[in-house]
C-alpha cells in the first residue's frame, strides 16, 4: 500500500495558482522530500494532504483514505508538524507533550518507545517552558508531539528551517530511525544538503514538480561536465567565468563550479588559459564531484 498518492492536485488563491497539477506517490516506510524555495507551493501541498485545504483539482489519498471524503480518518492517523512553529510557548516541555498525547487519545507511556531517544535529550529541560528552548530543542519537542500517537504517515513542513547545522543533522538522524519503525515521512526543506538524506526527492518550483528521483539517480544522471575552480580574487573569478561560452558558473563552497552545457566539450586547460588571460592568479582547476545542489541548480537554469 502507498502511504500517499497525489494525482494532479491543484490549488489557487485568488486566481493565482499555488500548486499546479502535482502528482507523486510515497511508498510505505519511505522518506520523501519536497525540496524547493519559499512560495513554491510546499505548504499548500502539505495542507491538502493533511485535509486542511481542499484541492481545486485532482485527488489525493493518504494511507488509502481520500483527503476530501475521509478527512476524519486521516486526521486520526497522521502526524503533522506545520512550518509555523506549533507548540504552546507558555507550557512546559512536559505539559506540551502531555497535552498533545491527550488530544490524540493516547498517553506518553503508550508510545514512549517511539519518542524515547528524542525525549531523553529533552528530559533535563522538561519543566522549562517551550518558549525558552533553543530552536533545535523546540524542533525536537515538536517532533515528539507529532509522533506521540504513532502516526502512520508523518508530515513535516520545513522542520529544520532556521535551525543550526548541528541540530539539523541530529534531526535527520532521528528521522532515519523513525523510518525503521515503518513510519512513512513526507518532509519539505529549503536546504539542499538535506535532500541527500531522503530516499526520494521531488524538486518543486513555482507550484510544479521539476523532477522526482532518488538522490543517487539525480547525481548519476547529471550529464554535464563539471569543473571546480579557485583563484585568489573570488569576485573577479566569478565575473570572468561568466564570459566563458556555453557554461554556467556559480560559487560553490570555497570553489566556483563550472557546468558545461550538454553537447559541448571543454578542457580544464582552456578554462585555465581564459582565466590567466584575464589576469587571475592562484588558479586551481579540477573535476568536481557532482552534488544534489549542482543537479538542482542545473534544473533551475
Amino acid at each position: 500500500m502507498k502511504a500517499v498518492i497525489a494525482e494532479n492536485i491543484s490549488k489557487q488563491y485568488n486566481g493565482k495558482p499555488a500548486v499546479e497539477k502535482v502528482s507523486f506517490e510515497v511508498d510505505e516506510g519511505e522518506i520523501f522530500g519536497l525540496i524547493g524555495p519559499d512560495g513554491a507551493g510546499k505548504t499548500s501541498i502539505f495542507r491538502i494532504l493533511t485535509t486542511l485545504l481542499l484541492p481545486d483539482g485532482g485527488s489525493a489519498q493518504v494511507h488509502h483514505w481520500d483527503v476530501v471524503k475521509d478527512w476524519r480518518a486521516i486526521r486520526n492517523a497522521v502526524g503533522y508538524m506545520p512550518g509555523k512553529f506549533s507548540l504552546y510557548q507558555d507550557l512546559t516541555v512536559e505539559e506540551n507533550l502531555h497535552f498533545f498525547a491527550t488530544v490524540f487519545n493516547t498517553s506518553i507511556q503508550e508510545n514512549y518507545h517511539l519518542i524515547e531517544e528524542i525525549y531523553v535529550q529533552l528530559e533535563p529541560f522538561k519543566n522549562r517552558r517551550a518558549g525558552k528552548l533553543s530552536g533545535g530543542m523546540k524542533q525536537k519537542l515538536a517532533l515528539c508531539c507529532a509522533l506521540i500517537h504513532k502516526p502512520k504517515v508523518l508530515f513535516l513542513d520545513e522542520p529544520t528551517t532556521g535551525v543550526d547545522p548541528v541540530s539539523r543533522r541530529e534531526f535527520w538522524e532521528m528521522l532515519k530511525k523513525l523510518k525503521q519503525q515503518n513510519i512513512s515521512i513526507v518532509v519539505s526543506t529549503p536546504y539542499m544538503d538535506e535532500a541527500s538524506m531522503c530516499d526520494r526527492i521531488a524538486s518543486i518550483q513555482s507550484g510544479s514538480i521539476l523532477s522526482i528521483d532518488t538522490p543517487q539517480y539525480l547525481v548519476k544522471n547529471y550529464g554535464n561536465q563539471l569543473f571546480k575552480v579557485k583563484a585568489n580574487d573570488r569576485y573577479r573569478l566569478l565575473e570572468v567565468l561568466k564570459s566563458v561560452p556555453s557554461t554556467k558558473s556559480y560559487a560553490f563552497g570555497e570553489y566556483a563550479h563550472i557546468s558545461v552545457e550538454k553537447g559541448h566539450q571543454m578542457e580544464a586547460s582552456e578554462i585555465r588559459q581564459h582565466l590567466h588571460q584575464n589576469g587571475l592568479t592562484g588558479v586551481e582547476i579540477g573535476d568536481a564531484e557532482v552534488t544534489i545542489e549542482d543537479c538542482f541548480i542545473n534544473l533551475l537554469h
Partner: peptide
C-alpha cells in the same frame, strides 16, 4: 501560532 493546524489534524 499554528497550533490550530495541529489541533485540526487530530482526532
Amino acid at each position: 501560532m499554528g497550533t490550530m493546524e495541529v489541533l485540526l489534524v487530530s482526532p
